[in-house]
Design a protein around this nucleic acid. Structure first.
Lengths: 99, 99
DNA sequence: ACCGCTATTTTTAGCGA
DNA sequence: ATCGCTAAAAATAGCGG
């Protein structure tokens, strides 16, 4: 029952890694859902893995909406040219991690 | 000191909502990071809100990479036509929530 | 707005089935 | 693979600064 801290590195045992993925995936989804409800924000979450099956919890249309929104936001505010306005109409939080 | 359970509904007080957003945003990022490390997966996370400033924790290039990967995955597997193969090369978990 | 504190709630690793 | 259980770890709401 959780003996000691969990080391923050890749779980080598494949079964354990799979079980942990399943549990933490659900935990992350719950947290994302709670954040969206409590704080009145829109959340998009994607997890990619080189091996495995497809898990999808939303329509492609919805994700596409977020992608379009993100792109049009970036375009409107010239993010690439570092000319973002201090107060804009969309709040975006993006975290991109590769394995 | 956390008296009682937190009701799962929009926090009406704007200051409290802002503080909670800041705290839970960090928590969610940490969870996403941990999932990616422990389970050897790639994670993309976006939070949108109608009002507020831009938060960005990754380069546009990286997010763009994920978007491209997602799109090419969907294209390759004809997701829109419901002809997904049972074992594919990319695992995707998507949660899309609107406020 | 942001920090530190801490009581309490929530998550979760490891196990058995 | 997936469930239930439980002790331990982690997150966090509400406060003071």
């Amino acid at each position: 029952m959780v003996r000691g801290k969990t080391e923050m590195k890749r779980i080598e045992n494949e079964t354990s890694r799979q079980v942990t993925f399943s549990k933490r995936r659900n935990g992350l989804l719950k947290k994302a859902f709670e954040l969206s409800v409590l704080c009145d924000v829109e959340v998009a979450l994607a997890v990619f893995c080189p091996r495995g099956r497809l898990y999808e919890f939303s329509s492609a249309t919805s994700l596409q909406k977020s992608i379009d929104r993100y792109k049009s936001y970036r375009k409107d505010n010239n993010v690439n040219n570092k000319t973002v306005q201090p107060d804009i109409q969309v709040k975006i939080l993006i975290c991109q991690l590769f394995c």
